[in-house]
């Protein structure tokens, strides 16, 4: 391998290579590493005790729990939707497939603030649904259901998008073969199709989790910003920040940052896993 590399015609010389790598490293250090280091630096600026106090604050814990709830629900709904939609789109041909895919992809191309806005318009006071919801005693916006809906919305296509290329590449022959032998939907899914997509599914779920935990704009619109009730962790961080409690804000940020790093590590591991599995 080393030899073929030497033979390769395009090699820019050592200097060019160093400059290119150097520029990339400097760019990434400034834009990616520095903010992370800074979060930790401020989080621990009042020492370990200050940090501990900030992250175990009653409201911080409640915000974390709400964030987890929204994340889990978003994950469940989007996994179900992703699996079903990917199956329908890749195993069958039907009219309107393109429209369906576009609609599923739509939520991530919309600004999070606008995502929040459309839910306000749907369930808010001026909506025709509002009287019915009020009669039924259901409160969606400025309440937990709104936060969950917004989280589902902004992470909507993540799992679907990871599954489609894998299932497309796999084709439909194996499923047809199983169906011709009389296998039912669940048997085919479990025994034939699922093993192909398990890593892609897990990968999509990781991405979905990451985005769900960190969603800010859409949730911000739909939350009533009630401390301990409708504040997710990112909203709580904003609140602390605007109250000039920087240590608290950065301490809570560090929780999300650690999650983010775990997500990145999982992502790399899953990607490597998926690649080796493909080569078998």
């Amino acid at each position: 391998m080393a030899d073929t590399k030497k033979v390769a015609v395009v090699h820019e010389g050592k200097a060019g290579r160093r400059i290119a790598i150097g520029a990339c490293v400097v760019f990434l250090v400034i834009f990616l590493v520095l903010p992370l280091v800074y979060i930790l630096a401020v989080a621990f600026s009042d020492g370990w005790l200050g940090y501990k106090k900030a992250v175990t604050d009653e409201y911080a814990v409640k915000a974390t729990l709400l964030t987890l709830l929204a994340t889990v629900v978003a994950l469940a709904i989007n996994t179900l939707m992703g699996l079903c939609a990917a199956w329908a789109v890749t195993k069958f041909s039907f009219r309107g497939k393109k429209i369906l895919t576009t609609l599923i992809d739509l939520p991530v191309t919309v600004s999070p603030v606008i995502a929040g806005l459309i839910y306000v318009l749907t369930f808010g006071r001026q909506s025709f649904l509002y009287p019915y919801l009020e009669k039924a005693g259901i409160k969606i916006i400025f309440a937990v259901p709104g936060i969950i809906l917004a989280t589902v919305f902004v992470t909507f296509p993540f799992i679907f998008r990871e599954l489609v290329p894998v299932l497309t590449a796999e084709g439909t022959d194996e499923e047809e073969a199983a169906a011709l032998m009389g296998a039912s939907f669940f048997t085919i899914f479990r025994k034939v199709t699922f093993p192909h997509m398990k890593w892609a599914l897990l990968y999509g779920m990781v991405l979905c989790t990451a985005r769900a935990m960190g969603e800010f704009g859409a949730v911000s619109v739909l939350s009533g910003h009630l401390r301990g009730k409708t504040n997710t962790l990112p909203l709580y961080i904003e609140l602390l920040y605007q109250g000039y409690d920087f240590t608290g804000a950065f301490a809570c940020s560090s929780i999300l940052m650690i999650f983010a790093i775990i997500v990145l590590i999982l992502r790399s591991a899953l990607e490597a896993r998926g690649k080796t599995e493909k080569n078998v």
Partner: peptide, 20 residues
């Protein structure tokens, strides 16, 4: 470096915002 590229995606935007 390759693993880091997705950080802006994984890190909550508000967290990145206050840090920057």
């Amino acid at each position: 470096i390759d693993g880091m590229i997705e950080l802006p995606f994984a890190l909550p935007t508000a967290v990145a915002g206050i840090s920057l």
